[in-house]
Write a protein that binds this DNA or RNA. Structure first.
Lengths: 356, 356
DNA sequence: TTGAAAGCGCTACCAT
DNA sequence: ATGGTAGCGCTTTCAA
């Protein structure tokens, strides 16, 4: 802080106008890039702005225009590569359309999500993209609409909300992979998810609050029923949230005489832990255990055996969500759209017929 | 838009004040939680606010207070798990201190970085955390200080800038792992980084614009020199930015009669590709090739062999950066601090003595 | 404890 | 094409 360089006084349009010898309105026009000004004046004002090191105040601008050029994004966990990709998609699309992104992490906690949305709205973001933690609690989401802002749901649909949504074809994908496993001869197939219920037991689909996972479980159970397996429910395992919880869950699964011959992991974090656990337990893959996971995380291609996955177009999911939101912000008025992006089964080496 | 529910008129303090039968100033005091008001009035105002469904306008608040409660974060690529963890650390710390995070992706492009910083400043973020793409171009970073805002550098130091910085002990870590490799008998050790020069050739450290990588290369070369290897430079390979570029780079490396017996990858994305390529080329690891990478990405523990890594405390890096920034925002006035977090070598199975 | 009034920096409307 | 001026919704003196 030696030199008093550009003193810390804030330079405003008024200052620039004064130096340029024009009115505040005129200076504002060239600085804000609107209205009409003569070339001569434009140059003079720009010179004055540069001389004074003028920096526009977007806050003030937003204040009068009512638009902030910002979209709020609420995801479960940015550390999860799934959301990492999605956010990248969102932010690339946003940037190319001139929008900024305010990011909030909910940690899959509705209360945090609620608070985040509240402050985002208070900060006057133009619209929001959220991956709602629980399909059942929607009051705060409705609040967004009430505040006059657009909302796009990412990866997790809540039809009752009637808002634009982008998801993958979860139910269909789950059904397909379950059928695949059945066709290969598997009868004991477990589905493992981070979602949870108070008593950690799965009873019916409505217990599952994450829409995308609920869809998958429905597909999973439906495919099993179709094949004549009536107790698919007991193969749904909940609460795989931390390495520890996955460990104990796996211990239960593997320790059972009635051990599953195949496991479907609901996300790549779960699959990674299960893979480690199986390996450490000396369970040979794919012969003693087949593994399949949702999300084509980078590592799945590099293990031995490489893991068969349901590839979700995650980046595109984010891109599409941002695109839809921006369309709304530009005034598109249409009934709520639900965009479903196709998944793709990538067969690698982690599936084989059951050994017994 | 059937029902005219809460009509889309914006409710302001004035409205609340009117309904509560008090002055605007008083209403603002209870709504904004400052000054002193009688309990009676407080209750009345709150009731009125609820009745009208009042939503504070943070923009207006920021406008008058000069603080936005927001910190800007500019990283290279949020899709890279490294930054994913760091951003999670930042955002957790920020949230617990009552700050929001505006995220911008530079894609490691200085021009984008420049633009991002400009709009972040225009949006009046209270301070910034950035992972500068190039150590050489600092004008836009200095600009942050000139605008009266605090800046914390994340993972990449630029000492000349004289700002708070959080990094890992890159140089020392690189030196240590190179010595380890040398001690195991390796003499042909390659260092592969995404950083690049115009002609893709490494000549001297100053060619490398990413500070953290420059440090590592210096450590790498220094350790080699110490062991009597004079041409370490030729083992530095640049431009490993995409799967394709890594493929051709690897082809060159592996195809050489003088193939390296060990490779140090500068990040986990590179390591992953190299791992795949080596496997697909039938190069046995670790016997025919030792691999070591910076960043303890989750997948490194799960491959065969698992990959030996330099664990950087990435989440903590982000946390610390946010903590330092927030301290500055709270008025801490101290000389620039450079926090160096220790790394840890995690030996797994990807290193063995050279086979020839 | 409460109220009146003056801005914060900008845009937007209405004149000229 | 340019200028004057009234706000945007809030905080913050200063008085009462």
């Amino acid at each position: 802080m030696k030199e008093a360089q550009s003193k810390n006084v804030i330079v405003t349009v008024a200052d620039v106008a004064r130096l340029a010898g024009v009115s505040k309105a005129t200076a504002a026009r060239v600085l804000g890039g609107y209205g009409t000004v003569s070339d001569k004046v434009r140059l003079e004002v720009k010179a004055a702005a540069k001389a004074l090191d003028y920096r526009p105040n977007e806050l003030a601008r937003s204040m009068t225009t009512g638009r902030s050029g910002t979209i709020g994004v609420v995801v479960g966990d940015i550390e999860n590569p799934f959301f990492g990709s999605a956010v990248r998609g969102i932010s690339d699309m946003a940037r190319s359309a001139g929008f900024n992104v305010v990011l909030a992490n909910s940690g899959e906690d509705v209360d945090v999500e609620r608070a985040a949305i509240k402050t985002l709205v208070a900060k006057r973001v133009d619209g929001l993209i959220v991956s709602p933690a629980r399909a059942g609690e929607t009051e705060h989401l409705k609040e967004i609409g009430r505040s006059g802002r657009s909302l796009v749901l990412l990866d997790r649909a809540i039809p009752a909300l009637g808002v634009d949504t982008v998801t993958a074809d979860d139910r269909q994908a789950a059904e397909a992979v379950t059928r695949l496993l059945l066709a290969r001869g598997h009868r004991r197939i477990a589905y493992v998810t981070a979602c949870d219920t108070p008593d950690h037991l799965y009873r019916e689909a409505s217990d599952i609050h994450t829409a995308s996972v609920r869809e998958r479980i429905e597909g999973f159970i439906h495919a099993g029923r179709d094949a004549g397996i009536s107790d698919m429910e007991r193969w749904v395992r909940l609460g795989a949230t931390t390495p520890d919880s996955i460990r104990s869950l796996a211990a239960d699964l593997f320790g059972n005489v009635d051990m599953p011959s195949a496991i479907i992991a609901s996300d790549s974090l779960i699959a990674l832990e299960l893979f480690k656990l199986a390996r450490d337990s000396g369970i040979a893959m794919p012969d003693a255990l087949s593994l399949l996971t949702f999300h084509d995380a980078t590592w799945t291609a590099v293990t031995t055996p490489p893991v068969t996955v349901v590839r979700q177009p995650v980046y595109e999911l984010g891109e599409a969500a941002a695109r839809m939101l921006i369309e709304r912000l530009k005034g598109v008025d249409a009934p709520p759209r639900h965009l479903v992006l196709p998944t793709e089964l990538i067969e690698r080496g982690s599936i084989a017929p059951p050994s017994r």
